[in-house]
């Protein structure tokens, strides 16, 4: 016996949502775009991928990118003997996560935090948080932390640590630097490369 389900029964779309892995595969793709953008400043790129992502209106702007990347450098600083946020594509990963992983509430929080950091920077005589000295950036991060009850730093720090210790197939933990630093071994079988898009 076969009966069609009435379409009105749907709440939020048919079938399962994209799996988390499928989201991450897209993040890796978004990260590539983000990386290209970073290399050529604010230049826009043509093509379906950018158009699709822009339409969703979720990607980081250049100002947000600069501000949050600087904040991530304070949250997880880089050193010659240990990787930091900038070494593991933490900002590219967060940019992708803005599109596919985190809800609109968290997205707005990330955005508002970025705006607020630059407002606080103005109080220190500059227009961009990223232009401040590291110690001043750290002070302002603590101010933002208190203002947001810790929510902003929790979201950004979580994604920074995911970039540090996630599987490199997702465009993070470049060359396994995070795993090497902390002695993480034995995570096999590893997920297939993004373009293979297999499995659960």
């Amino acid at each position: 016996m076969t009966t069609e389900l009435p379409k009105t029964a749907s709440r939020g779309g048919w079938g399962y949502r994209l799996s988390r892995r499928e989201f991450l595969v897209r993040i890796a793709a978004a990260g590539l775009v983000a990386g290209a953008l970073a290399r050529c400043g604010a230049a826009r790129q043509d093509g379906w991928r950018m158009a699709e992502l822009d339409e969703m209106g979720a990607r980081l702007t250049t100002a947000e990118w600069e501000t949050i990347a600087a904040a991530q450098d304070r949250l997880l600083p880089s050193a010659p003997d240990s990787p930091g946020a900038r070494d593991v594509n933490a900002i590219g990963y967060l940019d992708g996560a803005m599109l596919f992983l985190i809800g609109s509430e968290a997205r707005d929080l990330v955005r508002r935090g970025s705006v607020r950091l630059n407002e606080l920077a103005e109080g220190r005589g500059v227009t961009r948080f990223s232009a401040l000295a590291e110690a001043t950036q750290a002070e302002l991060l603590h101010e933002l932390h208190d203002e947001t009850d810790g929510d902003w730093t929790a979201v950004v720090l979580r994604h920074t640590l995911e970039a540090l210790l996630g599987d490199p197939v997702y465009g993070v933990n470049t060359g396994q630097v995070g795993w090497t630093w902390l002695g993480i071994v034995g995570r096999y079988p590893r997920p297939p490369r993004a373009e293979q898009g297999r499995g659960g």
């Binding site: 939020g12 399962y16 949502r17 799996s19 988390r20 892995r21 991450l24 995911e162 210790l165 996630g166 599987d167 997702y170 993070v172 034995g186 995570r187 096999y188 079988p189 590893r190 997920p191 297939p192 297999r198 499995g199 659960g200």
Partner: peptide, 18 residues
Amino acid sequence: DFFKDELGRDRHDSYTPD
């Protein structure tokens, strides 16, 4: 189909419904 993929799994997320 099973990998040791912490990001992809995020606890049971890959294997439980939305």
